[in-house]
Design a binder for these strands. Structure first.
Lengths: 345, 345
DNA sequence: TTGAAAGCGCTAACAG
DNA sequence: CTGTTAGCGCTTTCAA
């Protein structure tokens, strides 16, 4: 038989109301009574019944918001899948979820949304935004107002966000290195393409990538690193030049987003399927390239969890006033190839 | 505002009790009334509140059992993690879960457990057992008695089980092939080690593996296939002989369980890290071998989900009399290497 | 064949 | 400071 509040009340010689007050650290309980009740709770190892709590809570409507840029394809589909599942789980608890999508190239819009939310009566925000001073200050503002913010996908570490849900970027570069390292043979070289050293995400990936090769003992001169700013033409030209100049290059690590440009170069040079390519994330084009054998592996970051978990964390906080233990909740780094790509949620 | 039973009752001009009877297809409702109520339910798109249902259901104690062999290490840990999560989710609904573990080498024991369960008052069984006539008949027996059985990890397809949760074995072989195919170069050969052709699991893996290479156009004579019956010494000897006789072998696909024996051969022959090895599942030793670089990749089958989902499916059936749509629920095939092995749940 | 009512465990409002 | 009470939405008696 499961322990109920009534049983605790009886054993401690108080009423259910008082037990409830103790459970939620509410005021108006004499310290000695509180202590007595707490002991009984401990002794009996009381676990609240979530269903009952949900029911009783129901008229206490709560609103959560999730704010992210205008992604498309897999990214969009997976995160929305995660949001939908969280919404369903939370709806019976009187918690509703509202997504807000801002134009990817218009960060001002993101700030506007946060402003509007601040003035509304949201009870929590899941946020994926660029790491700028304005955003950071806004998060701290919200924190002051007791509106908790959980960042996901891309962190804003030096803010008062509750926690971060997303990939560990350094590690994701190491995973890529580990895959390629198995293939590398004497004298063969690798081309590393990143967006921009200033962008911490890509930098961390490349750092992790090189770090792992260092450990394995592959000399640094085997790597050609180029910065391509996520631009199609720049990527195309630089990758082309690099491959033309270095016939020993057998591997490409794309730490940035212009995978299409890279694929196009390989096709034009007749190297598709001859040079191994590892990249990140699953977009519709990357999927296609996997199937065609132009890209060999891609490393996925579980967007589903990135939609689901931040909302559930916020929901838990609303319902049980409990803040998460870990400030960094890293999502799985799944290795995807042409054969297991079907299994993505 | 969410639709409640009361709202339906009002709109249809009946009482809540009648709506409940209609919802659950219970008898004692005049056909015309039933129809009217059903229409209102449709119109208002009624979604039952799970929390309320859980509460009201609570005294209706239900028992689920999960039966599986005495695994150890990761296998055991992951499945127990899945069971624990399912148990927690179900406990508020008055559903309890009891695991039963039988000696891996003693299938009779499994049957005894099922016999005992049949005589007890379980309301559903999640089962991982060998595919034998006796087991199959027992499942059909249980089905007659309206005790639903969900198989997991290893299917018993020609029985009256509700559905199967586990990996798609043919596909898992294809995933392995896809990985190795990227590393294979002209003239290089591959050693394929399986347990036993009779064992459908290993056979399907090898079939999938060869099928994929067929598609890619690698000639069959590049593959050496040996049967090792999951025995350490047989595996050791046969792998040793194969490698000694064929210096062109650069890859090993272990479709069976004696990975340790294979690793030992590689070490003895000084080939560890020189020959690429892909295998299945994550055991403590495989983990160790990944880190040492003796095994390069392993394909994981999500044991967590294999513990979690069968129980949740059975729980859903108990609570909403709903049987699952898909009879095969395949779990993810995750590719694991030395760097992302940490992220396993 | 139907409706009314009690109660699942918890919370919140009100009364003392 | 504390106890009592009235629900939350659903299921399940029991009476009609």
């Amino acid at each position: 038989m499961k322990i109920t509040i009534k049983m605790i009340a009886e054993k401690a010689g108080v009423s259910a109301g008082t037990v409830d007050r103790v459970l939620h650290n509410r005021p108006n309980v004499k310290p000695e009574v509180r202590e007595r009740v707490e002991k009984v709770i401990q002794e009996l190892d009381y676990q609240p019944n979530k269903a009952a709590r949900a029911l009783a809570y129901r008229d206490n409507y709560k609103q959560l918001a999730i704010v992210f840029p205008s992604w498309s394809g897999y990214f969009r589909r997976d995160i929305e899948h995660g949001i939908a599942d969280a919404e369903e789980n939370l709806s019976d608890f009187g918690v509703s979820v509202q997504p807000y999508i801002y134009d990817q190239r218009n960060h001002k819009q993101c700030l506007d949304i946060l402003d509007a939310l601040q003035r509304s009566h949201v009870n929590g925000i899941a946020l994926c935004a660029e790491n700028s001073v304005l955003i950071r200050e806004k998060i701290n503002d919200l924190h002051e107002q007791h509106i908790p913010v959980v960042t996901f996908n891309s962190d804003i570490a030096d803010s008062k966000r509750i926690c971060f849900v997303g990939q560990e970027t350094l590690r994701s570069g190491r995973v890529a290195a580990e895959i390629l390292s198995k293939y590398l043979r004497d004298g063969e070289e690798t081309l590393v393409v990143l967006g921009n050293y200033e962008y911490s995400g890509h930098k961390a990936r490349v750092d992790g990538f090189l770090q792992r090769f260092d450990e394995i003992g592959v000399p640094r001169e085997r790597f050609h690193i180029i910065e391509c700013y996520n631009e199609y033409t720049i990527t195309f030209d630089k990758v082309y030049d690099a491959l033309a100049a270095n016939p020993n290059i057998r591997f490409i690590y794309m730490a940035n987003r212009s995978v299409t440009a890279c694929a196009e170069v390989l096709r034009r040079m007749g190297l598709a399927g001859k040079i191994r390519v590892v990249c990140h994330d699953v977009t519709d084009t990357i999927c296609q390239l996997l199937r065609e054998g132009v890209v060999d592996f891609t490393i996925e970051q579980d967007l589903y969890a990135q939609g689901y978990r931040p909302l559930m964390i916020l929901g838990d906080m609303l319902m049980s006033r409990r803040i998460p233990e870990r400030r960094y909740q890293y999502t799985a780094l799944n290795i995807i190839n042409a054969e297991n790509v079907e299994y993505l949620k």
